[in-house]
Design a protein around this nucleic acid. Sequence first.
DNA 1: GTGGTCTAGACCACG
DNA 2: GTGGTCTAGACCACG
Lengths: 126, 126, 126, 126
Amino acid sequence: MVVLDLKSNKPIYEQIVEQVKYHVIKGHLKPGDSIPSVRKLALDISITPGTVAKAYQELERQNIIETIRGKGTFIAGTIEMKQDDVRLAESKKLMRSAVLECKVMGMTEEQVTGIVKELYKEMSVC
Amino acid sequence: MVVLDLKSNKPIYEQIVEQVKYHVIKGHLKPGDSIPSVRKLALDISITPGTVAKAYQELERQNIIETIRGKGTFIAGTIEMKQDDVRLAESKKLMRSAVLECKVMGMTEEQVTGIVKELYKEMSVC
Amino acid sequence: MVVLDLKSNKPIYEQIVEQVKYHVIKGHLKPGDSIPSVRKLALDISITPGTVAKAYQELERQNIIETIRGKGTFIAGTIEMKQDDVRLAESKKLMRSAVLECKVMGMTEEQVTGIVKELYKEMSVC
Amino acid sequence: MVVLDLKSNKPIYEQIVEQVKYHVIKGHLKPGDSIPSVRKLALDISITPGTVAKAYQELERQNIIETIRGKGTFIAGTIEMKQDDVRLAESKKLMRSAVLECKVMGMTEEQVTGIVKELYKEMSVC
DNA sequence: GTGGTCTAGACCACG
DNA sequence: GTGGTCTAGACCACG
């Protein structure tokens, strides 16, 4: 379920974080579903366990997953969806850079929102 | 015109690149306008000239600015706005991460496109 | 594998770029082959790591090499060989200066193409 | 007769040198022909006289032009066309870089020699 | 271990 | 004056 691009400039642990979030958003992973252990995923995608651990810690910090000692790691029962100001500001910063790049390329507002809608739908449960 | 966020995880040279692009997009900087010399900007924002030089070289690579030997640095006569495939794909990747974060926070499509439109307008010539 | 000419007017980082390209063209370096780390090459040829890093970044921009985080730097899987207009024009400019010099020295067309063929063959896989 | 590209990475004085050579090669300028004084050319192309002077010194060093005190500057009576080893080596270095770039772009020997022949003919007396 | 960023400064060619 | 290169080294994130 996780596909890495080792050549990407995006750190591997962030790629894992993004992909887990993607599968949650898509409904492939539902609250309570188990996800592979750090070691198993590390083996599966041939990277060092430390990198997977870092990704899982980040996902836990964001309340996307929960680790139960001796049981394993699971998608959190209730995905934190409260739009707190800090996370909103962070998302907006990301969005700002993305919109800026589109504008520099000469895209119209319609083109940009078109891409956004397309991506939004792609991330929706099917 | 350039304001740094030293606490940001974004490299200083990228912040400079972004901000010059922003001012071009906003119309604050027009084709042919000069921008501060490497040394002057470095002094202004208290960083080392090498970092400014790196930002300027990146902007030149992207055809945003042009340097004229011994004269200084200027906003390019014609900003490259061709939407080539490579840059489109890169912008989409940025946008993907941004939209994903918004979705994880539980935003509706309307909320996301709302933010995008707001940002787009903020970046338009007033 | 890299030999510097410190007396040359050509910057060191460009000499490195040229020589890596040469070895790729000659087949000494094949897709997937690793090249020395920034630090190792810097030590080997007694220059500062920053200069090697600059060369490697330029090679990456040209899709000649790829860096894998924490692993090192490698010859790109597929060397970009598409003859886009911009690069074609740049190559032609270089060639123009070279041919002009030859003509000023009084070379005939045969002499010039002779040298070109000789150089081309020298750069071919043996 | 001289057209500058101020944005070029090629120094202005070199552009002047190249263009004078080009006009000589093309037969537009013949042995004994006068060329504009340093001051006149500087005015014509709106650059500082020092830069023109540097170009003329370089052309004189290469025996392309001659300056006669109080008379002006002229195309040399006999253009030095002896192919001495030093200049041959220099030309070959230029050509090497040009051919390397072409090869990296994937050009065949025929494509490269084709471009060379085209450029050679373009530089011939018409 | 790896490459990326940044400093503080020197030196250079060009104009 | 201008930008480009390079040094020698620190510090950092990532794996």
